[in-house]
């Protein structure tokens, strides 16, 4: 391939821009990774690359149940919330995108309202209600607010996906002799699957990310998720700064997100923007 000087200049310019963007995105991420691999002696040397690499911090957090328990909580709570939210969201989104029925606007309005809702406004009543119902500091106590707050996201994203499936296909299936159930199973569901999957990723990231509910509605390791747990690492150990442990724990919970992003970036972008474009 031969390139003209002008072309080469353009490529050079884009390379610079791209590098700047990538550095911007990776800067703090790299710092926490670097911290997690530093041993206690060099932890506070401020150097950008660990001088002596060690897995000590990782061994440390996996040795205690405080972190492993939180990790299990995080995974379990996020997964269950995702499954429930996506299931309910799929049903509602299908209805919103495809069916004519009174009350549809109410549903859209409600979910929009909740999407805009400040979680802190719910924390105090939920705290009191959950203590009363015995849900405080349990998995269910977190799953309930998570799925509620991710439902609008799920409905919003999914209905945008559903709307993209051409109406005529369902009509064609009906004329071809399909019952409504068959039309859904054989025609709509296979086409909706990518959208459902994308939505699941977004909802999972949302649940995985939450901090406010996690610190407010838990008090022990019974249901405390990782983001809350690492915040409580601070000061929990008297003998050394928990910096290394926090960094290691932070890296561990970052890994699944990075994997998602690497594998499904196209879908995530589509999902994040699907509703907004039409709005």
């Amino acid at each position: 391939m031969s390139t003209s000087p002008a072309q080469r200049r353009r490529i050079a310019r884009w390379s610079v821009v791209n590098t700047a963007v990538v550095l911007y995105a990776l800067f703090p991420v790299w710092w926490i990774v670097a911290l997690s691999f530093k041993d206690p002696a060099t932890l506070s040397d401020g150097s950008f690359v660990p001088r002596r690499w060690t897995l000590e911090n990782y061994r440390g957090i996996f040795a205690t149940s405080e972190f492993t328990r939180a990790l299990v909580n995080s995974i379990g709570i996020a997964l269950i919330s995702t499954v429930v939210a996506v299931t309910l969201g799929t049903m509602a989104a299908y209805a919103v995108a495809r069916l004519r029925f009174p009350g549809k606007r109410l549903l859209i309005g409600t979910s929009l309202l909740i999407a805009m809702f400040p979680p802190i406004s719910l924390v105090s009543p939920l705290f009191d209600i959950e203590r009363f119902l015995g849900l405080f500091d349990t998995w269910a106590g977190l799953i309930i607010p998570y799925m509620t707050f991710s439902l609008p996201l799920a409905i919003y994203t999914l209905s945008a996906f559903f709307r993209e499936i051409p109406w005529d296909l369902e009509k064609a299936a009906k004329v071809d002799g399909a019952t409504p159930a068959q039309a859904f199973r054989l025609v709509i569901a296979p086409l909706a699957a990518p959208g459902v999957f994308t939505t699941a990723i977004l909802v999972f990231i949302f649940c995985w990310n939450d901090f406010l509910f996690a610190i407010s509605l838990t008090s022990t390791t019974a249901a405390r998720t990782v983001p809350a747990a690492i915040a409580f690492f601070t000061g929990s150990s008297q003998f050394q700064q928990p910096t290394g442990s926090i960094a290691a724990a932070a890296v561990v919970i970052t890994v699944p997100i990075v994997v998602f992003v690497l594998l499904f970036q196209r879908r995530i972008v589509a999902g994040l923007t699907s509703g907004a474009v039409k709005g």
């Binding site: 009509k171 064609a172 004329v175 071809d176 002799g177």
Partner: peptide, 17 residues
């Protein structure tokens, strides 16, 4: 229901699966 009418339809968008 459409399925019980034994008719076939060709759509403007073709509506191919």
């Amino acid at each position: 229901a459409p399925k019980d009418r034994d008719i076939a339809m060709v759509f403007q968008s073709y509506a191919l699966y």
